[in-house]
């Protein structure tokens, strides 16, 4: 793995009023890694993802994306080319047909008039069709998005990411509201597509099983601190037990 580091996190801290969300966290992410963030609720997973998405700002420490500080990505359109986000469902505009939700991934590149015109005559249909084919929904182009099931909606969100083509994908509990079969399906697709596109994925997950199954590296957070950071196949059951333990062993 001699490729350069795409994300560098250095002694980063974030507090909410009195409560510590993250305290001097440091790690480095290489290009193309598939990382799962695990840890009990309130460990700081979402805070970390929001920092990376520049929805929040760190109190102290350094966050470099592609060697540049986050402040260089303050332009929404520029940042969208670097970082894409997928969350639980409810991320799509239900009243729009599927194709427009997919094509929304291109809004960063389109001017206002092109995007307005697109609502009447869809542009780049070929690419949208290809993206939907890759996520396994080739015949749902003009279906109203809200008529799709939860799993299908997450696939549409994946197709949107395919159109957006960010270098980094941040996934905040991407399968939290899906049943196990759909969850498997969506995670499989997310990691497979990311590998094909040479994208880096950082996903927060509740389920350790999914994390081990689909991701190459596990970063465990507990009380805002790094608990362990290991390749997926080196994590032991004992470590996981300690991670989710309610009280610290003294």
């Amino acid at each position: 793995m001699s490729e350069k580091n795409i994300i560098e996190i250095n002694q980063i801290s974030k507090n909410y009023e009195r409560k510590i969300a993250l305290s001097s966290l440091s790690f480095v992410v290489e290009k193309g890694e598939l990382i799962a963030l695990i840890g009990p609720s309130g460990a700081g997973k979402t805070t970390l993802l929001n920092l990376l998405a520049s929805i929040l700002e760190a109190d102290s420490g350094e966050l470099l994306v592609d060697g540049k500080p986050m402040s260089q990505f303050s332009d929404q359109k520029k940042r969208a080319k670097k970082i894409g986000i997928i969350r639980q469902q409810f991320d799509l505009v239900g009243q729009l047909p599927v194709i427009h939700n997919v094509l929304a991934g291109r809004l960063a590149d389109w001017g206002f008039f092109k995007s307005l015109f697109n609502l009447f005559i869809p542009q780049e249909r070929q690419e949208a069709t290809t993206a939907l084919k890759r996520v396994g929904l080739p015949d749902k182009l003009y279906e109203r998005t809200s008529n799709l099931s939860g799993g299908e909606q997450q696939r549409v969100a994946l197709a949107r990411l395919l159109m957006q083509k960010p270098e980094i994908i941040l996934a905040d509990e991407p399968v939290a509201s899906l049943d196990p079969a759909r969850a498997d399906d969506v995670l499989d697709m997310l990691t497979k597509l990311a590998k094909e596109e040479h994208q880096t994925v950082i996903a927060s997950l509740h389920s350790v099983d999914y994390a081990r199954k689909y991701f190459t590296r596990l970063i465990a957070l507990k009380n805002g601190k790094l608990f362990f950071d290991l390749p997926a196949d080196q994590v032991t059951d004992k470590q996981l037990e300690e991670l989710y333990q309610l009280k610290e062993l003294s």
């Binding site: 969350r87 729009l96 929304a104 809004l107 307005l116």
Partner: peptide
Amino acid sequence: EPIKALRATGASRLQCLFY
């Protein structure tokens, strides 16, 4: 949520309005 997701794909305020 959908609006935030649109912002994250790089949509401007005006694009968010129409999408």
